[in-house]
Simulated assay, not measured.
Amino acid sequence: MEQYELTKSFSSSFGEINYDIKGEGPPIVLVHGTPWASYNWRYIIPALSQWFTVYYYDLLGYGKSEKSEGDVSLGIQNKVFSELLNYWELQNPIAIGHDFGGATVLRTHLLEKQEFEKMILIDPVAVAPWGSPFFTHVNKYETAFQGIPEYIHKAIVSTYVQGAKYKSMDQETLEGIISPWLGSIGQSAFYRQIAQASQKYTDEVECLYNEINTPVLIVWGEQDTWIPIEKGHKLHSMIKSSEFVSIPNAGHLVQEDDPSRLLAYILKFLQV
């Protein structure tokens, strides 16, 4: 569908990034998490583009961006994001980050010194401890996972991603989410990004959250089983310039479970 096609590309220092731009108005940038892609913003982009120029892209190693072997960790994503912001010549845009995208926005602000007019963090990976037994297992046996038959891999990814949504996931959404992770390149990329996930990247910046003065909205799905809402409350207490809202009957993928309510909170925070 037109609203989430990526028609443009940028050669970062770390690999090729596919992105797109929609709408007119003040700049707003969407940063997805793992194992997602810009596809998961497809219900958010058309509405925001009525008031803003919306920039969105696939993280290095995800979606339609380059998936070659190498570092695709959180330690690299903030550098890629900073390069993109400079390439787009954006100064002080609004940044919205989900999951790892929230961590990337925070790291880009605190480590790359990129300023944002406002930040919106949706169920972000931001407060220790985080990770899962599955992440630990993949980290230990990454090569073995990369070598499993494709039909087993597809079943693993399908089961895994459906756990992020509170409401049942329809087949079209499921296919849209898992398609970038299929085939030999996609399969390797899927386990590579999990194996490289490390809490050290949020530990680096967690002690700096109290220095944030930018207005921040933290949004959390009340039924998030991936990152419990208690982590959201803790993050809210650490960022003195933050507001906190929760969305009932929504899991980790709030933008899929309840995009309308999420949009309402975003627009209210941005005073549209």
Results as ranks from 00 to 15, higher is better:
Met1Asp: 13
Glu2Cys: 13
Tyr4Gly: 00
Tyr4Ile: 04
Ser11Thr: 11
Ser11Val: 11
Gly15Leu: 05
Glu16Thr: 13
Glu16Ser: 13
Gly23Asn: 11
Pro27Leu: 12
Val29Pro: 10
Ala37Asp: 13
Ser38Met: 09
Tyr43Cys: 14
Ala47His: 15
Ser49Asn: 14
Ser49Phe: 15
Phe52Gln: 04
Thr53Val: 12
Tyr57Pro: 03
Leu60Ala: 04
Gly63Tyr: 00
Lys64Arg: 08
Ser68Met: 10
Glu69Arg: 12
Gly70Phe: 01
Ser73His: 02
Ser73Ile: 06
Leu74Ala: 06
Gln77Ala: 00
Asn78Gln: 08
Lys79Cys: 02
Lys79Gly: 04
Lys79Ser: 02
Phe81Trp: 11
Phe81Ser: 04
Asn86Cys: 06
Tyr87Lys: 09
Ala95Cys: 06
Asp99Thr: 03
Phe100Ala: 15
Val105Phe: 01
Leu106Trp: 06
Glu112Ile: 09
Glu112Asp: 13
Glu117His: 10
Ile122Tyr: 06
Gly131Arg: 08
Ser132Pro: 01
Pro133Asn: 06
Val138Asp: 09
Gln146Ile: 06
Gly147Phe: 14
Ile148Cys: 06
Gln162Trp: 14
Lys165His: 10
Asp170Ser: 02
Gln171Leu: 15
Thr173Asn: 08
Trp181Phe: 04
Leu182Asn: 10
Leu182Ile: 03
Ser184Gln: 14
Ala189His: 08
Ala189Glu: 07
Thr202Trp: 14
Tyr209Asp: 03
Val219Phe: 00
Val219Gly: 04
Thr225Ile: 15
Thr225Ala: 09
Thr225Pro: 00
Pro228Gln: 09
Lys231Gln: 15
Lys231Glu: 05
His233Arg: 14
Leu235Tyr: 11
Ser242Lys: 11
Phe244Thr: 09
Asn249Thr: 12
Gly251Gln: 02
Leu263Ala: 09
Tyr265Gln: 08
Tyr265Ile: 02
